[in-house]
């Protein structure tokens, strides 16, 4: 999804192709930075796919889909290792400064966040497998809603990265609170279900874990968005009012 447009976008994201500015020279090591970015793009696609499949497995009680998620987790782990190797090699051999340095650091951190998204999708798939034979606690409303919000945040954080879109990154950060709220609300509802119908306890606890995983995925999307702001602005905005108004 991102790879096709990557080459055209990279220098926009790097901020070198701005109106009325002299174009910067392309260097041989730009291809190496592109490799880091394309691996990150691939990781983003895979992480989103894993999340979607895990949620599908949960809602449709699809055992095969859940097992596919568990099998595919290795792909994200391998990509994370590849990004780290490329980034460390780049630091060691190319001595990056300024945006190049920030890109390499952000690449490593975002890679780690996406790997964690994969882990959370894997956790959801595990829960889905356990829930295949359980009676439903309640109709799935909040879980798909949370999943859609978390997925949208991930997608936007990644497109903010590839498009160099600071406003979009800030917007992602500001949406995190909403997912947190639904998670808390769902937790309360599930606790209510357990007291009303103790037979649903096992299934309700599994759903609490699923909800927590989705909340964590939204946190990772927020981390990526904060990293994008750092890449573009050179300023660490974590824990500031701009990105966490609450």
């Amino acid at each position: 999804m991102f790879r096709g447009a990557l080459d055209n976008r990279i220098f926009v994201a790097l901020g070198f192709f701005q109106p009325n500015q002299k174009k910067s020279m392309k260097r041989f090591f730009d291809d190496e930075l592109n490799t880091i970015r394309s691996h990150l793009s691939l990781m983003g696609e895979k992480a989103i796919e894993q999340l979607r499949t895990a949620i599908k497995a949960l809602i449709e009680r699809d055992r095969e889909a859940a097992e596919r998620v568990r099998r595919n987790d290795d792909i994200l782990d391998e990509l994370e290792v590849k990004i780290d190797e490329e980034a460390i090699r780049f630091v060691g051999l190319r001595g990056p400064v300024a945006r190049d340095l920030r890109l390499v650091v952000v690449g490593m951190k975002a890679g780690h966040d996406l790997e964690r998204v994969g882990d959370e999708a894997n956790n959801i798939a595990k829960r889905a497998l356990k829930l295949v034979d359980e009676q439903p606690v309640k109709e799935y409303v909040d879980i798909p809603r949370m999943a859609a919000m978390a997925e949208e945040m991930l997608r936007d954080a990644l497109s903010a990265f590839f498009d160099g879109d600071e406003a979009k990154a800030i917007d992602v950060c500001q949406r995190d609170g909403e997912v947190d709220k639904i998670n808390k609300q769902l937790y309360r509802e599930l606790v209510g279900c357990i007291s009303e119908r103790p037979s649903t306890t096992t299934a309700a606890i599994e759903l609490m874990f699923v909800s927590k995983s989705l909340e964590r995925i939204a946190d990772h999307a927020t981390n990526i968005a904060e990293e994008v702001i750092y890449l573009l602005r050179g300023e660490d905005v974590r824990h500031t009012k701009e990105v966490s108004p609450d």
């Binding site: 070198f16 002299k22 910067s24 020279m25 260097r27 945006r99 920030r102 050179g234």
Partner: peptide, 19 residues
């Protein structure tokens, strides 16, 4: 200057892309 230059020419120069 090396972590977050304000000027695009400085950025291009310190990162070896000036030309």
């Amino acid at each position: 200057i090396f972590m977050n230059p304000k000027n695009n020419q400085t950025e291009a120069y310190v990162s070896g892309r000036f030309g």
